[in-house]
Design a protein around this nucleic acid. Structure first.
Lengths: 207, 207
DNA sequence: GTCTATAGCAGGATAGAC
DNA sequence: GTCTATCCTGCTATAGAC
């Protein structure tokens, strides 16, 4: 059908603006992107942007909310669709590095861009901290379930294990982006196994 | 002495501009800071900034070079002045989180800001990648020396161990900044011990 | 080498038509 | 709800005095 309701048009405009913002903020940085550029990329105008979000900052906040939901979805998908722990962790790693998913390779950049904005802007700090809490909670549940099902003991409490695993994944991704060879998949998985307590920890020993 | 040579004035202006840039870029982001604001904070004018660095981008590059040197100095100091491995790692952790040092609490923010710029701007990518190589090399040497001196075996090759340790420290700092309670010192140290292979790995076990 | 002054341009935000 | 047109602010970069 060609004609759509106002409701649909409104929702699509909102989605287009947020998608465009996610892409541009990741690639050029929040401060480096004009409201006009976002509107253009979304095939709308600044007028629409201001009606929806009140300005660039409102758009950023809305993006953070959508981002929170998407992240939990990705985590849940990884834990529900993959049987082995290695596969689950690899799936999370891949989505962060943009090998798949609608955000392309913008995941990590957007992650860091939003983190920087959140650390600087009091208004964004709380939603961002909550996002990380959600991620850790989901990750911790996944690890605890895995430990229960396999009978393997976790080296740390689930919450702590989740914080460490998330930390290593993020720090590994930061290095990986600059120089992929320094953080190959098997090294990361070995490190994660160290943190979790999986027996097969060693990867490559020094002579 | 009141009168100084041209050489000294020039060097001081350069240093003041770079210091001001480090502070402002960390707090507000590169794109969010005008060349004029940097010049004002340094008690100089944009004229001086342009003569020295050719513009804001040149200033950013110069800052990255200085930053590279400072980081290696901090690492070296940590490894030379502290006896125990835990103390060394804690010292690195503290400097990243700004408990000490001339950069105050701007270390981590500047780290992430420069990383984002480096990932986005081809001109900055190589110096930034080199900076991380330097850090890993220095860290790897420190770990290898520690293993030799104590006789304790590393769980991974020194280069790999350094990449993992750096990764966890960075990822832990990212979370710590949003919510310090989720990444207490002893948890981080336990995680690092897991990666390095130190026996006393466990911190808190689930029931 | 550093300052003052300014030209030229771009972006955030809004008013009013549709 | 969205678009067109525009105001105003603030920035980069440079020219010229000292």
């Amino acid at each position: 059908m060609v004609a759509r309701t106002q409701e649909q048009r409104k929702a699509e405009t909102r989605r287009r603006l947020i998608d465009a913002a996610a892409d541009l903020f990741a690639r050029k940085g929040y401060a480096g992107v004009s409201a006009e550029a976002v509107a253009d990329a979304a095939d709308r105008t600044t007028g629409a942007l201001y009606k929806h979000f009140g300005g660039k900052e409102g758009l950023l906040l809305a993006l953070l909310e959508v981002w929170k939901e998407e992240t939990v979805e990705v985590l849940t998908a990884a834990f529900e669709r993959m049987p082995a722990l290695d596969e689950r962790l690899t799936a999370i790693w891949r989505s962060l590095n943009g090998a798949q998913g609608r955000r392309g390779d913008a995941w990590l950049l957007l992650e860091m861009e939003l983190w920087l904005q959140g650390v600087r802007d009091p208004v964004m700090a709380e939603p961002l901290a909550e996002r990380y809490r959600d991620i850790r909670r989901r990750l911790g549940e996944g690890l605890r379930d895995w430990a229960e099902q396999t009978g393997a003991p976790l080296r740390h409490a689930p919450d702590d294990a989740a914080a460490l695993v998330l930390g290593l994944i993020v720090g590994a991704a930061v290095q990986h982006r600059l120089d992929p060879s320094t953080m190959p998949d098997d090294l990361l998985l070995a490190g994660l196994a160290d943190l979790i307590g999986t027996p097969s920890a060693a990867r490559r020993q020094p002579d």
